[in-house]
Each structure stands twice: as structure tokens, then as C-alpha cells.
Design a protein around this nucleic acid. Structure first.
Lengths: 205, 205
DNA sequence: GTGCTCAATATTGGCACCAATTCAGCAAAT
DNA sequence: ATTTGCTGAATTGGTGCCAATATTGAGCAC
């Protein structure tokens, strides 16, 4: 039985486990099992399941329970298109509002990402990637946007870092990160948009 | 005590009541009161409250409960900007994918809206407005996008139809609806974007 | 009157149990 | 062999109760 850190929200933990593939797609999330696994109360479990259902990370059928979403290609594409719309639109705001210290921070994160590629700590690479994209979006000054994209990212198929397509693709991602920061520093919205679109369309990140 | 239709989801009903101003901003949503008012079980209430919290329609403090969100001007502006990003981006897809029968349907809805302006059934006008915008977005072919915007609309301050700014503004909205359909029929993405941006920026809809 | 302590009160959150529902397996009938 | 119907098991969802927590108000010292 895994003990859970008191501060960490249970629904986040559950979402991370789903994303990590602990529960196979289509399998039922039985409340009793979860209760034991996370050492949580029944109400906590019910609450977390309802949260994840509202966030569309899992599905629900009355009197049957919650189960892990079977990947739906069409919906995944739609979410990806939405992210492209949002992040390319945000690019215009970003070039206007970005501050020099934010650009410096982004360079740092982009560099950390490429530095980590050689190590095979996939989870760390994944997290640095997220951190980069979050910091990039934050330069738009729209906190709600940052939150929204984070949620959308979780709706995406549960098979992220664990099976990143290829080493070459990760390298390319690293380069694209730098390309984004460069375009941002040059305040070249069109170029930034183009890079972001291509980057998300690959949909590894 | 209000009885609830079995088919209607309780959280939607609650959200509608919050939006309609049944609960004043900042007031606590006491579980016992809700239980009585909606003739629901305690678990149903807890579930719905958690749903609305996840959707950011209400707030929550542990051991204190859920309460109606006090309007936050900054966040409202951010959501509005996000909607502008999404709906103007979608405009490009819309002009590509729209079908003739959808254009006809949009004209019908736009006409219904202006027809209803004279009647003072504000709730119906509000619903027609929503129906129009939903149908407009649907022409993008992205169902997830339609859902997402619906959710974003609910996050917006709880004071919508009940106090629509002015009669003149509603008339203007009606005209803008037609302008949108015209631009869409002409497949003029730039014009469509401009109208949508102006329309949402007024943020009455 | 002001500030402090402490008890009374109200509300949420957790728990154990029970009812309701669904499902799998199996047997009987066609 | 397929269908139908039944029964038992597993699971969710509802209920009542109680503990934990927060709020309120009264009493009291100063």
C-alpha cells in the first residue's frame, strides 16, 4: 500500500498514476481498491474520482463506477487543435508583454531540457518540458490560460513520457524550444507561431 | 422545495441557479440547505459541489465548505481573452468547413434572436443567444471546442442575462449575429474574426 | 467599553452499514 | 445450440451517526 504525502492532492496523484499507465485503459477504478492503494477514506476517493471525471480524465457510468478512458483518436486531435489555436494566439500577446528576465528563464529551461536528454530519466525530461511550456505561456500574462492548457494537456491520451516516440524527436523538441525563445526575444510573432504550431502538431510534448 | 427533473443533472441545475443569482456572491452553499432545496441525497450534493468546484464555478475551503465565487475582474478579463483567442482562431476553420445547411440554421437562430428582443423574456433571449453561438462554433467541426467554450462561458461572472447592459446593446448583438453569418457565408475569415472579436469584447453574450 | 477565554452551536467530513443495481455463471427450457 | 430466467456475488450509492473543525456569543477580568 502506498502512502501519500499529506500535502499532495489525491486527485493529482491518481491522475499521475493513470497517466503513467498504472491502470490499463478501460479498467474499472474500484473504490475499495483505491481506498487501500492510497490509504484514503471513501469520501476522499469519491471526491477525487468525481474531480477527474469533471476534468474528463476518466469516465463514469451510474451504478457501475469510474473507468479509465479508452483513447479516442478524434477527441485527441480536437484537443491538439485547440491547443494550437490557444498557444499560437497567445504568441501575439507574448511578444508584446514578455520581459527580459522571463526570456532568460526560458533559455535556462530550454538548456536544462537538452542537458537532460542524454540521461534517461524520462520523468525528469518530461517535467522540464512541461516547465518550459508553462513558463513560455506565462509570458502572456494570462494565468487562466496557463491553467487551462495544463488541464487540456491532461486530457490528452494517457501515454506520454513513458513511450516518447523517438530519441530523434526529443532532440528536435529541444531545438524547437530554443527556436521559440529566439523568436520570442526577436518579438517575431509570425515565426513564434509557426514554431509553436509545428511543435504541438508533433504532439509529443 | 423544488423537485428536480430526473434527467437533468443536479450540478447543471445548481450552476443555473447560481448564474441566475439565487445565491448571492460570497454566500455559503450549506449542504443541508441544498439537500432540502433540491430534494437530493447528501452524496449527490457533495458530488455536484465538487463538480462545480472543479469547473471553477464555486470555491471551496476545507472544513468550511463551498461558497459562491466573488466576482474577480482580472480572471474575468482573462477568460474573455481566451474566448477571443479560441473563437477567432476557430473562424479560420469555420469558413473552410461550413456547410450550407448550417448557414441556413444560423440565419434562423439570428432571426429568432432579433424577434425575441421585443419580448422581455430575458431567459429565452439568453438561451437563443447561446444556441446561436454554439451552432456557430459547431461549424468548426470541433466538438471538444464547443464543450470547452460552454464551460468557459460558465466561469464568467454570475450576472448574465439578469442584467444585460442595455437594450441598445442587445440590438447591436442581434446585428452582429447577422454580420457573423454573412461573413461566414462569404468565407471571409478576416471579417468574421473582426466581428467575433468585437462581439465577445462587449462580453454581453 | 475592550479584549480574552471558554463553552455552546453549527457545519463539514469520515465511517460503517444497508439498499439498490449490475453482472456473471449456470441451469432449464425450447 | 441458443435463449431465458434465476441466483449469488460484487460494487456502487444512500443514510444515519459521530468526530473534527470552525464560528458565535456569553461571561469575565481589566
Amino acid at each position: 500500500m502506498r502512502r501519500r504525502k499529506p500535502n499532495k492532492d489525491l486527485s493529482d496523484l491518481l491522475a499521475a498514476d493513470i497517466r503513467a499507465g498504472v491502470y490499463s485503459p478501460g479498467s474499472w477504478l474500484k473504490q475499495i481498491d483505491l481506498q487501500r492503494r492510497y490509504d484514503a477514506s471513501r469520501s476522499e476517493i469519491r471526491k477525487s474520482l468525481e474531480t477527474l471525471f469533471t476534468k474528463r480524465i476518466i469516465r463514469y457510468e451510474p451504478n457501475r463506477g469510474y473507468y479509465v478512458h479508452r483513447e479516442d483518436g478524434a477527441a485527441t486531435d480536437e484537443i491538439r487543435d485547440i491547443r494550437i489555436m490557444l498557444e499560437t494566439s497567445a504568441a501575439e500577446v507574448m511578444v508584446e508583454k514578455v520581459q527580459q528576465d522571463q526570456i532568460n528563464g526560458l533559455y535556462t529551461l530550454a538548456q536544462r531540457f537538452v542537458d537532460q536528454i542524454r540521461s534517461d530519466k524520462i520523468m525528469e525530461i518530461y517535467e522540464t518540458n512541461i516547465a518550459f511550456h508553462t513558463a513560455l505561456l506565462a509570458t502572456s500574462g494570462n494565468a487562466s490560460l496557463v491553467d487551462l492548457i495544463s488541464e487540456l494537456r491532461l486530457r490528452t491520451p494517457p501515454a506520454p513520457a513513458s513511450q516518447w516516440s523517438s530519441y530523434a524527436r526529443i532532440e528536435k523538441s529541444g531545438q524547437e524550444h530554443f527556436a521559440m525563445v529566439d523568436a520570442l526575444a526577436d518579438k517575431d510573432a509570425a515565426r513564434l507561431k509557426a514554431v509553436i504550431r509545428a511543435h504541438i502538431a508533433q504532439s509529443d510534448n
